[in-house]
């Protein structure tokens, strides 16, 4: 099998337009990469939220990045074959979310219980003494929380 690591590496250059510290690879939205016999590169992406208006922009950014490489064609598709889950975010991605000031989503096994939103660690002071203010925030993937320890309002990346 061909070594595709240089493609994955190139895709790390493409960032989430709304959270520019996180690459699409670390966000977990790239589900497959392959190159066919005619040197056409095929990439499959899975949307974070189905209604996320940034997904088409992300897709076009992936196309633009791959067009700068030596392929005879670029084919980037979006489907739900592998549904996105916040568990797909890499450790590096979680750290990058925190750098941006967003609490990383709680990791979970099996069925997600939304009660985990009640004691999200504050990205500013680290306290778990926090309260969910609203499960909806400035973008579809964010929730709003309040830290009872440091008194700051902060946003979290939603577990899904």
């Amino acid at each position: 099998m061909d070594d595709l690591s240089h493609i994955w590496e190139a895709l790390r250059d493409v960032k989430d337009p709304e959270i520019p510290t996180v690459s699409l690879v670390d966000l977990g939205v790239i589900t497959s990469v392959s190159v066919d016999d005619e040197n056409v590169v095929h990439v499959t992406m899975t949307p974070t939220f189905v209604g996320c208006p940034a997904m088409e922009y992300m897709r076009s950014e992936v196309v633009r990045r791959l067009e700068r490489m030596e392929f005879s064609g670029v084919d980037v598709r979006m489907n739900f074959d592998i549904p996105w889950s916040s568990n797909r975010i890499t450790d590096e991605g979680r750290a990058a979310l925190a750098t941006f000031g967003l609490a990383p989503p709680a990791e979970y096994e099996g069925v997600l219980e939304l009660e985990v939103l009640n004691n999200v660690a504050c990205p500013i002071c680290g306290s778990h003494n926090t309260t969910l203010r609203s499960p909806f925030g400035p973008t579809l993937c964010r929730s709003i929380h309040y830290c009872n320890s440091c008194g700051e309002t902060f946003e979290g990346f939603k577990p899904l």
Binding site: V50, D81, P83, W84, L112, L140
Partner: peptide
């Protein structure tokens, strides 16, 4: 079925 698996969490 695939779409359902995706949107239910939302």
């Amino acid at each position: 079925a695939k779409l359902a698996a995706k949107v239910r969490g939302e």
